[in-house]
Computed example of a mutant assay.
Amino acid sequence: MARIEELAATLQGLAAPGIKRKELVAAVREKHPKASKKDIVRAAFYALTSAVDGDLERAQRLHTFALHERTAEDEEPLPVKRRKRDRRKDAQRNQQPTH
Rank of each mutant, 00 (worst) to 15 (best):
D53Q: 14
M1V: 10
G13T: 08
P17V: 02
I19Y: 03
L14Q: 12
P97M: 05
R93F: 04
D39T: 07
N94A: 15
S36Q: 12
Q96Y: 05
D39E: 15
K37Q: 13
I19K: 13
P97Y: 03
V52D: 11
Q92S: 02
K20E: 13
K34H: 11
D90T: 06
L48K: 13
M1Q: 11
L24N: 01
V52T: 15
V52R: 10
L48G: 07
D53K: 15
Q12K: 15
E69L: 05
E76T: 06
R42L: 10
E23H: 09
A51R: 15
R29E: 11
R3D: 13
Q12H: 03
R3G: 11
L78M: 07
D86K: 12
V25L: 15
T10I: 09
H68Y: 09
E76W: 03
P17K: 08
R70T: 06
A15F: 02
A2N: 12
V80K: 12
K81S: 07
A43E: 05
I19A: 11
Q95P: 00
E6M: 04
K20M: 09
A9V: 05
N94S: 12
Q95T: 03
V28L: 05
A35H: 03
K20Y: 02
K89M: 10
D90M: 11
E57I: 04
E5D: 15
K89V: 12
L56T: 12
R21S: 12
A47E: 03
L67W: 03
G54F: 05
R3M: 06
R82D: 07
P77Y: 01
V25Q: 04
A47V: 05
A66K: 01
D39I: 01
K22H: 08
K37V: 12
P79T: 07
T49D: 13
S36N: 05
